[in-house]
Design a protein around this nucleic acid. Structure first.
Lengths: 123, 123
DNA sequence: TTCTTAGTTCAATGATTGTTGAACATTAGA
DNA sequence: TCTAATGTTCAACAATCATTGAACTAAGAA
């Protein structure tokens, strides 16, 4: 786990990048799950039903680079949080409306998460 | 101008397709212009500052297939309208929030359209 | 130290994207 | 009819995408 994990500053978050990042079924399912477990940090491993370790690593990077999630190392894990406030400041209403719609059109495997998943162990 | 111009039914509009379609700078600029000239049909030619004829034809097809615009033949032209109501029914709030944000982060060449462009000649 | 957990990096791969230019089709007008 | 205006289709192309498996790194536990 080499590097620095760069995140764009709020004012550098770009709309096309955000929309493109959200325009993928796997990533949309991820942010829907993150939004549901609002403000609770989740590790990448919690999303393994959505793809392989490698694929998830790729998608998490995409979401991070687009400014949609914050990623914080915690031991061997990576804890993810939605950048709700930053996105709301930069592009008001978008995240909420996307999440609301994504919840309806959710991923096949994306069901009752808070129940089926053990505690994240975050702060 | 050969074919039938298929549009998805409102209930068949898919969120990833919409977000992906909007996640392109050219297409984002197009819907920003369409939104600004609200409910006035615009021909593809009105967007030539954003790209070549061929490129626009491609982007219009993307927007149409995603369910974002309606395309109607009118003589040798194609008149575009935003599918505001359909999108609002299917994914409430998304189009408005995207358009509002896109207006701020607009395309370099996307300025005072209603002024610089002659009448569309629509119905 | 050794083993396990959790995630990253890399190269390869096939699919999709957005652009171009040339040729074509369709409609309208002279 | 001939011509202009407005888009479409096609093949080509470089670039990016999403996925895979193998190898690797780092942190924590035994």
């Amino acid at each position: 786990m080499t590097n620095y994990l760069p995140h764009p500053a709020t004012e550098d978050i770009e709309l096309p990048a955000v929309l493109t990042a959200l325009g993928d079924e796997t990533r949309l399912a991820m942010i829907a799950i993150l939004a549901r477990n609002s403000e609770k940090a989740m590790a990448c491993g919690q999303f393994l039903q959505l793809g392989s370790k490698t694929a998830l690593s790729y998608h998490v990077a995409k979401l991070r680079e687009a400014g949609i999630v914050h990623v914080r190392p915690d031991g061997t894990k990576r804890l993810l949080t939605l950048r709700r406030d930053d996105l709301e400041k930069r592009f008001p209403g978008i995240l909420d409306s996307v999440v609301a719609s994504a919840a309806v059109v959710s991923h096949p495997d994306d069901q009752d998460w808070a129940a089926t998943t053990e505690s994240t162990g975050d702060e």
